[in-house]
């Protein structure tokens, strides 16, 4: 429930590469072979522990469809981490990475940690993009790289947690200003005494006001 930090992630990439499946695997530890088309953005959240600290990952799973691009772009802002996903069985999804990366870099803060993910690693037989190519792309653009399988859950945890570790390290290094929510990092509410004194009420009203 309570957490020290909240990191905002975004998952981006072509439609059908398995973004929502990755999220579902990470948050619910299950795989859904047929997934509804994501409209705009969906959300998932999970607690992880890094360096003994509870960190809540709030993941914004964006729609991959081209028609949503203009909308999803508006969600990039304020993300601390991004999972840029392609499908190893579809080369075109790999070829579009540059566009996605440009988009992400343009609409997010420069310190955002980007993890490149080659998904569907379980479908080795249909592989079109070699792992080396993914590695080379990541190296070239300064990304972290992993091949995952949302179906088998291979590397899914690692992908999310390693990104969080990188962000956490950046916080430790003072790169991220945790007091600036535009960085996609919030400090958890667990230490605020208001929670104990207000089982309900007051705070909520304030929250409502903030949203205007």
């Amino acid at each position: 429930m309570s957490y020290a930090y909240l990191f905002k992630y975004i998952i981006i990439g072509d439609t059908g590469v398995g973004k929502s499946c990755l999220l579902l695997q990470f948050t619910d530890k299950r795989f859904q072979p047929v997934h509804d088309l994501t409209i705009g953005v969906e959300f998932g959240a999970r607690m992880i522990t890094i360096d003994g600290k509870q960190i809540k990952l709030q993941i914004w799973d964006t729609a991959g469809q081209e028609s949503f691009r203009s909308i999803t772009r508006s969600y990039y802002r304020g993300a601390a981490g991004a999972l840029l996903v392609y499908d190893i069985t579809r080369r075109d999804t790999f070829n579009h990475l540059t566009t996605w990366l440009e988009d992400a870099r343009q609409h997010s803060n420069s310190n955002m940690v980007i993890m490149l993910i080659g998904n569907k690693s379980d479908l080795e037989a249909r592989r079109e993009v070699k792992k080396e190519e993914g590695e080379a792309f990541a190296r070239e653009h300064g990304l972290i790289f992993m091949e995952t399988s949302a179906k088998t859950a291979a590397n899914v945890e690692e992908a999310f947690i390693n990104t969080a570790k990188e962000i956490y390290q950046k916080i430790q290094d003072g790169v991220f200003d945790i007091n600036n929510e535009a960085n996609g990092i919030k400090i958890g509410p667990q230490h605020s005494p208001a929670n104990q004194n207000m089982p309900s009420g007051g705070g909520g009203g304030n929250q409502g006001g903030n949203c205007c």
Binding site: M1, S2, G40, V41, F43, G44, A45, Q58, W60, I71, S74, Y75, R77, G78, P189, Q190, N195, Q196, M198, P199, S200, G201, G203, G204, Q207, C211
Partner: peptide
């Protein structure tokens, strides 16, 4: 107490149900 409080804390529950995230996203939009 904090656990109890969270159980009856509307904001926390609203956040847990991704209501806050949607509101935030809507605000950005």
């Amino acid at each position: 107490e904090s656990e109890e409080a969270l159980k009856v804390n509307f904001t926390a529950l609203f956040e847990d149900n991704q209501g806050l995230a949607h509101l935030e996203a809507l605000e950005m939009l």
